[in-house]
Computed example of a mutant assay.
Amino acid sequence: MTGEQRQRERMRTGYDTVAGEYQRRIGGELAGKPLDRALLAALVEQAGPGAAVADLGCGPGHVAGFLAGLGAARVVGVDLSPAMVELAREAHPEAEFRVGDLCELPAEEGEFGAAVALYSVIHLSGEELAAACAELHRVLRPGGRALVAFHLGSEVRRLTEWWGHQVEVDFHFRPLAAVAEALEAAGLAVEVRLEREPGEGEAETRRGYLVARRP
């Protein structure tokens, strides 16, 4: 097992451990995030009628449920954590959920008209980010767009205690340009670049958003 594989296994274990508490604390977060809601609505509208939409790193499924509520014809959530996927299936039967890795997505080529990755690429090393961007390109149909959100910076923070549980989860902070370059290197065209300050109740980190299209 490589170092990256061991880290992903530690991440899976960490998210399995905190899944219930994560759902309780984070599951309603979109109610206080009007910018995120607007970007998700624009993505679904641009995908067009009948398009399937992916929520990559879906956690307990709250974003997938919101996407389904916007009228997306089919929503598929993917998460590395089986415990998260189980919670998502229970809470949001209007969407489909799959256990899977961002670097090896359980999806067909061109399956999705749009994809969302909100704060899921933050757990990926540089090589893993490149692989995940290549997978994003693969699963999007031509003309399909992806919305990617992440923490801005240039450091790696390791979380060893999370809501009273011992974990070992790495968070990669990156400049907006670095993630844009990774998407473009995978063949995606970046159309939108946004940065914002943290909102009320959020962790004190600046946030970056990118919208990229498969030509």
Rank of each mutant, 00 (worst) to 15 (best):
Glu111Gly: 00
Pro215Ile: 11
His92Gly: 11
Val167Lys: 04
Cys103Glu: 07
Gly3Val: 06
Cys133Asp: 01
Glu96Pro: 14
Gly187Pro: 04
Phe150Ala: 02
Gly100Phe: 10
Leu140Glu: 13
Arg207Phe: 04
Ala54Met: 01
Thr17Val: 11
Phe112Leu: 10
Asp79Arg: 12
Ser125Ala: 04
Thr2Arg: 14
Leu194Lys: 12
Glu45Thr: 09
Gly59Thr: 12
His165Glu: 14
Phe171Tyr: 15
Val169Ile: 15
His165Gly: 02
Glu181Ser: 10
Arg74Tyr: 05
Ile26Met: 15
Val18His: 05
Ala68Asn: 01
Trp162Tyr: 11
Glu21His: 01
Phe97Ala: 12
His151Asp: 06
Ala114Phe: 08
Pro60Ile: 06
Arg6Ile: 00
Arg207Glu: 10
Glu197Ile: 03
Val76Glu: 06
Pro60Asp: 06
Val75Tyr: 12
Asp79Lys: 13
Glu45Met: 10
Ser125Met: 06
Gly110Asn: 03
Arg138Ser: 12
Leu56Val: 11
Arg141Ile: 07
Ala64Asn: 11
Ala88Cys: 09
Ala64Tyr: 01
Val190Met: 10
Trp163Asn: 05
Thr17Gly: 08
Glu168Lys: 09
Gly143Ala: 07
Gly100Ser: 03
Lys33Asp: 09
Leu35Met: 14
Ala132Thr: 09
Ala115Ile: 02
Ala38Ser: 14
Arg24Asn: 13
Leu159Thr: 09
Pro106Val: 12
Gly3Lys: 01
Leu136Gln: 00
Glu86Ala: 15
Phe173Glu: 03
Leu56Glu: 05
Glu204Phe: 08
Gly28Val: 00
Glu168Asn: 07
Ala64Gly: 08
Ala31Trp: 08
Val78Lys: 07
Gly143Asp: 04
Gly126Met: 01
Phe112Asn: 03
Arg214Thr: 01
Arg141Gly: 14
Leu210Glu: 02
Ala189Met: 02
Leu176Arg: 15
Pro198Leu: 01
Arg213Glu: 15
Val116Arg: 02
Glu90Phe: 00
Glu135Met: 13
Val121Ala: 04
Ala186Pro: 00
Thr17Arg: 15
Asp170Cys: 05
Leu129Gln: 08
Leu80Ser: 06
Gly50Arg: 04
Gly32Pro: 01
Ala54Asp: 00
Glu21Tyr: 01
His137Asn: 11
Ala177Gln: 15
Glu202Asp: 13
Ala54Leu: 13
Ala19Ser: 12
Gly59Pro: 04
Ala41Trp: 08
Ala52Thr: 13
Arg158Asn: 02
Pro49Trp: 00
His151Met: 08
Arg193Ile: 10
Leu136Tyr: 07
Leu147Ser: 10
Glu90Ser: 13
Thr2Ala: 12
Gly61Tyr: 12
Phe150Asp: 04
Phe66Ala: 02
